[in-house]
């Protein structure tokens, strides 16, 4: 995974709360055995008419959304399924940061493992971001800051290990493989492992 550090981009706003993973990528696209190319199905039922044509009124289809890498989402984004296809689809579409007041546990962990910054900010900062679609903002992972549209910045925290992996491009599987001695000792010495 490529290191993530500073991302500058205009924002796209989807204010609905509780956007679930079935909206992000409907289940019928999960029969793939690859993780590539899922961006074409991102928010499929919102982006496209049943007949297949794009819905002009959906925010990601508007011309000003082109090239935006930051999604300002409503509360509790990513609830529902554990499908990692959700962050894969967002990344493949070009979204690199999701900002909300709350992000579902499994989605957040899936996102961070793939280099998609899933960020929680205070409600007041969130309100300002929601109110200013298309604002040019800067997300600085090292500093833990998001610049706000009307000046000032919001702080965010990312779990220390995930942050380290993102900044340094460290692979968590490699880290786990490095614990082989401890895992082996555990397997030898734990009477309750059934």
């Amino acid at each position: 995974m490529k290191p993530v550090d500073v991302i500058r981009s205009r924002t796209v706003v989807m204010a609905d709360p509780n956007v679930d993973t079935d909206q992000i990528i409907p289940a019928r696209f999960l029969t793939t055995t690859s993780r590539d190319g899922l961006g074409q199905h991102l928010f499929a039922d919102h982006r496209f008419e049943a007949a297949g044509g794009p819905r002009g009124d959906f925010v990601l289809n508007r011309p000003e959304a082109a090239g935006c890498q930051v999604l300002i989402a409503g509360d509790n984004f990513g609830c529902g399924s554990s499908r990692e296809h959700a962050p894969w689809a967002l990344l493949d579409f070009g979204i690199r940061v999701v900002i909300s007041t709350a992000i579902a546990d499994i989605f957040r962990s899936n996102a961070l493992r793939n280099g998609l910054l899933a960020i929680v900010v205070e409600p007041e900062a969130h309100r300002r971001l929601l109110a200013t679609p298309g604002a040019e903002i800067c997300v600085d992972l090292r500093a833990g800051t998001v610049s706000l549209p009307d000046g000032g910045e919001a702080r965010f925290e990312i779990e220390r290990f995930a942050r380290h992996c993102l900044l340094e491009g460290v692979d968590p599987l490699g880290y786990l493989l490095g614990k082989e001695a401890e895992i082996h000792a555990y397997e030898e010495n734990s009477p309750w492992t059934q």
């Binding site: 554990s82 499908r83 990692e84 793939n114 880290y175 786990l176 493989l177 895992i183």
Partner: peptide, 16 residues
Amino acid sequence: IGTSEVAHVLATQCLL
């Protein structure tokens, strides 16, 4: 868990 973690468990029987 997500698919990346499925790989973690397959390979190490552990999770972070």
